[in-house]
Nucleic acid binder design. Structure first.
Lengths: 130, 130
DNA sequence: TTCGGTGCAAAATCTTTGCATCAAG
DNA sequence: CTTGATGCAAAGATTTTGCACCGAA
């Protein structure tokens, strides 16, 4: 029931080649180069659709707009508290914390959302230069 | 430099006695009973201030408005994917994951944000009644 | 031809802010 | 008095949506 769309394909491809977890606005600005008439609404619609289909991942950072990740393999992120950037973290899987949560919870635990806070290498070195 | 304010005191007290992690809107509606003229803006300003001072905690759930917790002791939460409610989880501390993150990250890790996804006991039992 | 997708603009949702006035210290 | 806090309304930021038209199957 989902038809093919060149815009959606372009959005997905863009995300697959970016590793800085861009916002919808950034995706919009870039996809606009290939589709000058595309609208932000279409970008949001496609990002939701791709995310619902598990083809991309949506990241909510608690501050500012949501970000999107073309890498759907399980991994974690670090949110830089200085520049607001989001970096990948290839740390080992920590699904064992789900079991810890289940130990005292009377409902059902299906998973968890975790991201780390800190400073990215760039902001850290700028700081040390002072 | 922070002056005392009866409104802020009331907001804090309200949060201290609620355990369902209300949104700013809910805080507003309730504090309004005591201060009929209070405005949403004042509620937001005070929630930010209290949060900055570490007197309450702000919870971003990735869906819908932020929620606030009067309990500042470290603990985790479960977000019910059915009703959207947020429940406390008194599980053991998992700060060891910060060390795991540091193992491969070249920047600085200061902490983490984690919440679990699942179904609360109420939604789970309603589901089983079908 | 059919029905999902698009562009555009308006609306919805959540939060912040400017400003005149109020009240705590 | 002085200065932070408040109430109100307007503005901001982000995301969603209605609708007429377009394009994929």
């Amino acid at each position: 029931m989902t038809k093919h769309s060149r815009q959606r394909e372009c959005i997905k491809e863009f995300l697959t080649n970016r590793f800085d977890h861009p916002t919808a606005e950034t995706v919009y600005l870039n996809v606009k180069k290939e589709f000058p008439n595309i609208s932000l609404g279409t970008v949001y619609r496609n990002l939701s659709l791709l995310s619902d289909h598990g083809e991309i991942r949506k990241l909510s950072t608690g501050t500012g707009p949501d970000r999107f990740d073309g890498n759907t393999a399980p991994h974690y992120h670090v949110l830089c508290t200085e520049c607001g950037g989001v970096l990948d973290l290839n740390m080992e899987n920590i699904d064992h914390i789900n079991a810890l949560a289940r130990m005292q919870f009377k409902g059902e635990i299906s998973g968890h959302v975790t991201y780390f806070l800190g400073k990215c290498p760039e902001c850290l070195s700028k700081e040390n230069q002072k």
